[in-house]
Nucleic acid binder design. Structure first.
Length: 264
DNA sequence: ATGGTCGACTCTCGA
């Protein structure tokens, strides 16, 4: 299995229950090995797992009422599920933001990093701390020499190509220098930004604020969702792309899936 | 211009 092809995708659902009409048909058309989801906004007892099982996917999830929530769907057996951090600071909210497992012998870490709210807000410090704790988690549990995928809504645009108006967002919690440095320090552990390795053009975004009219058409977005891999795996990356599923008639919002494909 | 619109759930919060 180790040298098999592997396709992974990540999608911020903004409520899995209200996005089933998007996610399930997308998976049927795009039978990825693994789909990481964030902002499922549902308690575990109400997670719609049958909808995934019905189309041949296993799914693991950890959520809470109203906010946050993460899940991983996989076409194969899902092993070694764990939620939250393995540190003394771990909280129920952390568990609804971080879930990991192993699929086809490849460890997958799915994160919904706290957005941070404002530079002077306590939550921004929590966000910066989150990246330190992630690095510790990688140190303790994984090897830089082995395949590993770190995916999710990391709420950071890594550089000026990754936000539509960088100069006006220098003090934004998703683009401030301290935030970008926090992500960079985790990358230095041993990650390659798989999308950026294969696509150098600017204006390729994974998030469009639906409060901005026609944001997709006007290219007013952010690249804050990511798929990162250790070098051993990144070398096998053949293709990475952002699939924008346009809003359906009568249904709000556009939906962006970030996909990466690895060869043998 | 400092807005806008979603989604969950009590009505206001978070993004």
């Amino acid at each position: 299995m180790k040298n098999d092809n592997f396709i992974i995708a990540t999608f911020n659902t903004n409520s899995i229950r209200s996005r089933l009409h998007i996610v399930i048909p997308w998976l049927e058309r795009n039978p990825v090995d693994v789909l990481c989801m964030q902002e499922t906004k549902v308690q575990d007892k109400d997670f719609p797992k049958e909808a995934f099982n019905k189309i041949g996917y296993n799914v693991i999830y950890k959520g809470q009422k109203s906010y946050n929530g993460v899940a991983i769907a996989g076409k194969h057996e899902i092993k070694d599920m764990a939620a939250g951090f393995d540190d003394s600071e771990n909280s129920p909210e952390d568990e609804a933001r971080l879930i990991r497992c192993v699929v086809k012998d490849i460890p997958v870490v799915n994160a919904y990093v706290p957005q941070g709210r404002a530079l002077d807000h306590m939550y921004f410090q929590i966000k910066l701390r989150w990246f330190e704790r992630l690095r510790d988690l990688f140190d303790r549990n994984y090897s830089t020499d082995e395949p590993l995928l770190w995916c999710g809504d990391l709420n950071i645009a890594p550089d000026s190509r990754d936000v539509y108006a960088p100069d006006s967002y220098l003090d934004h919690v998703c683009f401030h220098e301290d935030a970008r440095k926090a992500l960079e320090k985790v990358k230095e552990w041993g990650f390659v930004d798989v999308f950026r390795k294969l696509n150098t053009d600017p204006d390729q975004y994974t998030f469009y604020d639906y409060r901005i009219p026609n944001a997709v058409k006007r290219r007013l977005g952010w690249r804050i969702d990511h798929i990162l891999a250790t070098a051993a795996l990144a070398e096998r990356a053949e293709k990475a792309y952002i699939d924008i599923t346009p809003r359906l008639a009568q249904k709000p919002s556009d939906h962006t899936f970030l996909v990466a494909e690895f060869g043998s």
